[in-house]
Write a protein that binds this DNA or RNA. Structure first.
Lengths: 190, 190
DNA sequence: ACCTGAACACCGTTCAAGT
DNA sequence: ACCTGAACACCGTTCAAGT
């Protein structure tokens, strides 16, 4: 008697979207319109529901932004893990910034009050940096070396993305100069 | 006949605030509440007028944020210009980040869509960096050296301000390590 | 000439009512 | 069980009306 028609009983309205679709729409909006363009309204429009429906999948806009940050960091981690040499890792890091500028800024240089990824996502993304830090400077200096390299690469990519290099000159040349100088400096430590 | 009482004629309502007071209130709010807390409402409340009155002094919230960014960069430029050695400049840069974290992030790592300072303000702030770049690496490498140093310092301070150094260890030690490695590396170039 | 209340189009979010 | 319209408190901004 209970299961005569369990489908229509259990699904009075079928799902019209999914958490993945919502996060993907949010990521696209972030790149296209910036963080201010990532509104619940715009996300809802993209996934084909009304704004209140989003709250069945995410608890707030803040949590949605956090999910975007975490998905981004997972992507970076996977890409960096594949690289071998220090130069490759750092070049891939920069390539990622060029491919997803807004997501890069969101995860690497969030302003105060912007929701960030939970700890474990950041740690996973720093594995590759620690690995090359140890390779270059020796295991006992792996952490400081990784921090030096990450700080430089983050600052450089962030500056080129927001147009802070205003004095002309070749940006790619400045990047190669920095890579060479840093790798050399860190190698001398070990 | 025209000037019997020019004061009351020309000032039917005396000024109740000023552009400086508005920008100062905005800077305070930025540090206390973050960029999202810098609302026209909150600024108006602080300077003692109603929100619409602000539009007599600034054309938009966007322009107000730009004025905050420019005032911030002017402050940095003055402080960096006073320093002599490369280590002093870069340490003062970090001290500034600690003193005004939200303003630092606003001017050094603004997200896409955030209003930034007009060109000349950024250039003025980079004078000191160019100077020490030339001191360390020689005039012909001044620009790439300045970019390497600025990128590293910006990335480092930005990361410590937003809590990106999550793996323990001594942050000050990592800073000193970076300063020493970079100055050494850039000196070898010249 | 500066200031204000009222109004508008937008946010994020809640919730009762629909299916 | 998911979806929606209506509603609320907030934004930034405009503008006619006050002094």
């Amino acid at each position: 008697m209970a299961n005569v028609n369990s489908y229509t009983r259990r699904m009075p309205t079928p799902d019209r979207t999914s958490l993945d679709a919502i996060v993907d729409a949010a990521r696209d909006l972030l790149e296209e319109q910036g963080l201010t363009g990532l509104t619940m309204n715009a996300v809802a429009l993209r996934v084909g529901v009304r704004p209140p429906s989003l709250y069945k999948r995410v608890s707030s806009r803040e949590q949605l932004v956090q999910l975007v940050a975490e998905a981004t960091l997972t992507g970076v981690a996977v890409r960096l893990d594949r690289m071998e040499s220090a130069a490759e890792v750092v070049n891939e890091f920069r390539r990622f910034g060029h491919a997803h500028p807004a997501a890069f800024q969101l995860v690497m240089t969030p302003a105060a009050g912007i929701p960030t990824a939970r700890r474990e996502f950041g740690e996973r993304a720093s594995d590759a940096m620690l690995r090359i830090g140890g390779m270059l400077a020796g295991e006992e200096h792996a952490l400081v070396a990784a921090r030096t390299l990450t700080a430089w690469a983050t600052g450089f990519v962030s500056m080129e993305l927001n147009g802070s290099f205003q004095l002309g000159g070749d940006i790619d040349e400045a990047w190669r100069f920095g890579v060479a100088r840093l790798i050399d400096a860190l190698t001398r430590v070990g």
